[in-house]
Write a protein that binds this DNA or RNA. Structure first.
Lengths: 227, 227
DNA sequence: AGTCTTTCTGATGCGGCGTCAGATTTTGGT
DNA sequence: ACCAAAATCTGACGCCGCATCAGAAAGACT
């Protein structure tokens, strides 16, 4: 299968990531516009249709074009989803600012944890359909999506690991990256299963509190008995 | 359209949950056997095929029967997945024993947390494909699967919440159910994205350590500064 | 206006879905 | 052991989405 692309931004480096259509040619104004329209309709539909039921036909119908056109710009359904997710993953990098350079000790630390949790919840809320699919396909084991998820959370994780090192000094008794990864990994989990908690009569505000505590503890590393 | 069922275990109560076939009749020996064979082939295939690509035809081919037979016992693909997941979810109830009645303070508490983490990892490992799908469809928002996931984790969560209450006495400053729910919710997340961590050069053993710490803290509730 | 390039589409073969009506196997009464 | 009735299975079918191609339509350039 062609390894072609749809990666709009492979890495902020090269000036113009060519963005070729499936047949290898570089689309012009009109082409890019339809491509964009297809992307938007995909996002739109993701909000109302479960992943498994999302058909290429649905997207093209919504975009007012024909199936063949779709295949001009995307290899298959997953490719368009990947492109959508890529865009969102970049947006997510902004969350790094909620971590790096924040105070993490004492009361200010709790405030920082609060801000992080709230920021993440808001981020998830405003991109729910896309992030759901990203999570889905990455759980599913698809390499491209798993990689993308890692990249998305990578910035936050590294930032948080750095903060953990700063707070706990040398010889923290847990690998800071592992702790950061666990904490950051909790966030999508919590945001994603929000409905689950409520179906359970646990007010989401309480879950938020729990998350804040866990982050605070994770960063500050209270004493744990030796074994 | 028929709303019928295929739920083998609607609730542990009534002696014989009838288990009707789609046409309303009660299957006999032979029928149950084929039904079982279909279930087993489904599990088998889940291990090698991504959810979206799993076709009814694949299952029937594997079971050496015809598509029509499949529809005799299951309304659709999701129904068979639900049945599979239901079975696994019940198995999961055993994990409650790793929580209820264990010691949670001091060094023994760390040991209990360790046992819980390891037990869960093993549980996940031995049912990976099924649990992946359960998580998947529940993330997807499907009511039946979400409910099932809640039921599966419910026992563990309630048990852990009880332990939290015991340890922290009255006036814990976080809702025990919310904390327990968060901690228990982390477990599938961690087990499921194990590959993700490793793609990241974080040894899974370190993640395990982090999880153990978080559980210990969550149960014992170290001091957190007031704001 | 004429030509070349880009972009779009209708038509098509393939394969899975879900449902019949009827064939095949099993059961149970005699 | 036999046979009718019940249970179970299946081949065949219409429908729809997938993915592709050849060629039509729309733009761009001179």
């Amino acid at each position: 299968m062609a390894k072609s692309d749809a990666s709009s931004t492979s890495r902020g480096h090269r000036a113009a990531p060519p963005l070729r259509a499936v047949d290898g040619r570089v689309p012009g104004r009109r082409g890019l516009a339809t491509r964009q329209r297809l992307l938007e309709c995909t996002i739109e539909l993701l909000g109302t249709t479960p992943y498994r039921d999302l058909k290429v036909t649905d997207i093209t119908r919504a975009a007012g074009t024909s199936p063949a056109t779709f295949y001009q710009y995307f290899v298959d359904l997953e490719t368009v989803l990947l492109a959508v997710a890529e865009h969102t993953a970049e947006e997510g990098q902004r969350l790094v600012d909620l971590i790096a350079g924040q105070p993490w000790k004492g009361a200010a630390g709790v405030a920082s944890a609060e801000a992080l949790v709230d920021g993440f919840i808001e981020f998830w809320r405003s991109h729910r359909p896309t992030l759901r699919v990203l999570d889905l396909l990455s759980t599913e084991g698809d390499k491209r999506f798993r990689h993308l998820r890692v990249v998305m959370l990578n910035g936050m994780t590294k930032a948080l690991a750095t903060e953990i090192e700063t707070v706990q000094g040398k010889s923290p008794d847990v690998d800071p990256m592992a702790m950061a990864g666990s904490l950051i990994g909790m966030l999508p989990q919590m945001a994603g299963h929000q409905g689950g908690f409520e179906a359970w009569d646990i007010p989401f505000a309480h879950v938020r509190q729990a998350m804040i505590r866990l982050i605070y503890w994770g960063v500050n590393g209270p004493k744990v008995p030796k074994r």
